[in-house]
Design a binder for these strands. Structure first.
Lengths: 233, 233
DNA sequence: TGACAAAATAAGTAGCTACATAATAGCGTT
DNA sequence: AACGCTATTATGTAGCTACTTATTTTGTCA
């Protein structure tokens, strides 16, 4: 073989990572410059650069031009979340997917929604309330606002055939996405729709998307009791 | 200037991204090969490669050797979460941080904890229950299990001076981290510790870390009512 | 001493080449 | 048709060079 002892950038990354784990570099310490590491590990600087970029992306290390690379003094837990389309989520868990359109209202956005989008001017919107089902039982209740200026085509979509969730994901790619997670107590209406008890603790996912500065949609997805969101890997 | 019209990999990325947004490539469609895009956009293949990698990381596109690049047919919402040390989180919100050690017990891990770590053999552990405070008021209640085999030094740490959260983050870097989010109803004990009402909806963050295959710690962090977790950006 | 300009520094990026690797497609044999 | 080998293909990676850019350090002059 031609290069058994050749280092890949992942090897370099792991070696530096291990050095930090082993305490050779502590929080706040400055690491040698890329070029020196390259010499020491007998590889190209570009290889070290890729390794360092990855460590920087994962939050272990901070890099600044001229300032060099240093171990983050107050490390963060950084994780990547994947949130699939609800239909796919249900099907992947082995359930049969279904959905019901509850209400569909064209109206101006209330102030709270405008604030979520960081807008100051009024905006015509479509409000869509829908229930996602797994094996015929409530799974997620969504309360969604869609900008009619950014996504006027939504007017002509039959939302009882295809959920707004799915139509938007397939037809309105976004640029920017904010997520927000928290817990609420089920109010009587919500409890009835989700077929659970008033006061039950429900996990909520709020998602807001934009294309450039233009608002697309904001949705409050209220999950049924027992729902868990996991990081993948 | 020397290169005003030179394309950076971010330009390439954005151009491809825009082409997808504009519908020139729909879900499932195959994109031209990197080399062709490079010719068309008059840049090096390595530049296209970097752009494509980024689009792939962000979940918009899937790449396979020989198979080429194609737009994900069922796109996911992918987001990065940063979870800081609790002390830092409190301080960043302008609060005064404090913490109380509630209980500290050395014992073998129960089956549920072993399962979380994907272990089958019994494991000696330290259980630490602690309360994080913001401006003297309850902020997060944590119920933590620490492996005494992987982190034996924890025995000698004064956990009323430094929280286990902080000591672990600074002294026990990890390789693998699983996160889990959900909602619970406050039971009477939890409610009392968090100074809230029994039955209140509480947002819970569970985090489990390993170094290679060895378990480090698993923690169930129960937040006070109103707590929200946001994606940054 | 302080302000500002110039030099030095270390990471970031672009381009090129060469080769590695995974996955597919094609072909021939039985 | 089923198999296994080989060739092909498109992405992935490593190395090199050259240049750019952000930031700090240093040096000079008022």
């Amino acid at each position: 073989m031609t290069h058994a002892n050749r280092l890949s950038w992942k090897d370099v990354r792991d070696e530096i990572h291990d050095a930090i784990l082993a305490g050779r570099y502590g929080p706040g310490d400055r690491l040698p410059r890329d070029a020196d590491i390259a010499v020491e590990m007998n590889c190209a600087r570009s290889t070290v650069q890729r390794a360092m970029q990855d460590l920087s992306d994962s939050g272990l290390v901070e890099r600044r031009r001229k300032g060099g690379t240093r171990v983050r003094s107050e490390p963060v837990t950084r994780a990547t979340l994947d949130i699939p389309i609800t239909r796919r989520e249900v099907e992947q868990k082995g359930g049969r997917y279904g959905h019901q359109l509850i209400r569909r209202t064209a109206t101006d956005a209330p102030r709270s929604v405008l604030a979520t989008f960081e807008l100051t001017e009024p905006e015509p919107m479509l409000r869509v309330e829908a229930l996602h089902l797994s094996d015929g039982r409530p799974y997620i209740l969504e309360d969604r606002w869609i900008s009619l200026r950014t996504a006027p085509e939504i007017r002509d979509v039959d939302l009882s055939a295809q959920s707004a969730n799915e139509w938007l994901v397939l037809n309105k790619p976004y640029n920017r996405c904010d997520l927000r997670f928290y817990a609420i107590s089920a109010d009587p209406q919500t409890a009835e729709l989700l077929q659970t008890d008033t006061g039950a603790a429900l996990f909520v996912i709020e998602r807001t998307t934009w294309i450039d500065a233009a608002p697309i949609t904001t949705v409050k997805a209220i999950t049924t009791p027992g729902y868990q969101l996991l990081t993948q890997s």
